[in-house]
């Protein structure tokens, strides 16, 4: 019994100091200069522009990677062969690789000094130091999320229901829409939400490919970094950080509320 209480206390203290203290500090200390100062800071043109650019990036990245993620999950979970295993490994690369390396690699491939930069320039396309680069970097780092949350579910639900639908005469698209996708809905949603959060918060990769131009290619994380590192604007960085943290919290709360409602609906239909 004594050991149990000791372990409980160790864990509680560790989590409170490591996570609770910084988060509580962010939530409280941002308001030290008053609410109006925080409001002035987050409504400044640079801050608003950073938020808009971040949300616009997410609006492109999340739907695209969700779609690609569903396709990749279906291939990985439902098809066999050596190339499927290769695909499985390749999808995971961004997890194993530092975001800084992702940024460097995109520059080395698509900037003016990179492999395909000259060809892209001939086409009049500027990828690096532009919003296109930010989107590309976000796509690269968020690729694994939907796949990782959907493949295990696809394997778990199996193919029995798909076969049943097929024997009843349903075509492949109909099976996909009516049987397969509904059964992995939560995996896809969870992955898409994680991808959204990662896009909002991605820093290293975007910092390198964006060129960090204030009011032009500055996303919210980079605005936070710049406020602290270049402009010594403590309030600006903290207000931005709080904004980002609040978006993350709201998204997580909505997700868990949806999940609870879904579980309740299931319980009803089971009765």
């Amino acid at each position: 019994m004594k050991a149990r209480v000791a372990i409980r206390l160790t864990v509680a203290v560790y989590l409170l100091v490591l996570v609770g203290l910084p988060v509580g500090f962010l939530l409280i200390h941002t308001w030290a200069g008053g609410a109006s100062a925080v409001w002035r800071s987050i409504s400044s043109p640079d801050a608003v522009h950073a938020v808009m650019l971040t949300l616009e990036t997410a609006a492109v990245v999340v739907p695209l990677n969700t779609l690609v993620g569903i396709g990749a999950s279906l291939l990985i979970a439902r098809r066999r062969g050596p190339w499927v295993r290769v695909l499985d490994v390749l999808v995971d690369i961004p997890v194993a690789v530092s975001p800084v390396i992702i940024g460097v690699s995109l520059v080395l491939a698509y900037s003016r000094i990179g492999w395909f930069g000259t060809a892209l320039a001939n086409w009049g396309l500027r990828v690096i130091f532009s919003p296109v680069g930010i989107v590309l970097a976000s796509l690269a780092v968020t690729l694994p999320y939907v796949v990782r949350s959907t493949v295990p579910l696809l394997r778990e639900v199996g193919t029995d229901q798909e076969w049943a639908a097929r024997t009843l005469g349903a075509g492949p698209w109909r099976i996909l829409w009516r049987v397969t996708l509904p059964s992995v809905k939560w995996g896809v949603t969870y992955g898409a939400v994680l991808a959204f959060l990662r896009t909002l918060g991605e820093f290293g990769a975007v910092l390198i490919v964006s060129g960090n131009v204030t009011g032009s290619t500055q996303t919210l994380p980079i605005y936070i970094f710049d406020s602290w590192d270049q402009n010594f604007d403590f309030l600006g960085s903290f207000a931005g950080a709080l904004e980002l943290a609040l978006i993350a919290v709201v998204v997580m709360v909505i997700l868990s509320a949806l999940q609870r409602r879904e579980r309740k609906l299931h319980a009803h239909s089971a009765l």
Binding site: G201, P221, I224, F225, S237, F238, A241, L244, A248
Partner: peptide, 8 residues
């Protein structure tokens, strides 16, 4: 986001 942790 990591930069939020960094600033804090």
């Amino acid at each position: 986001p990591t930069i939020v942790a960094g600033v804090v």
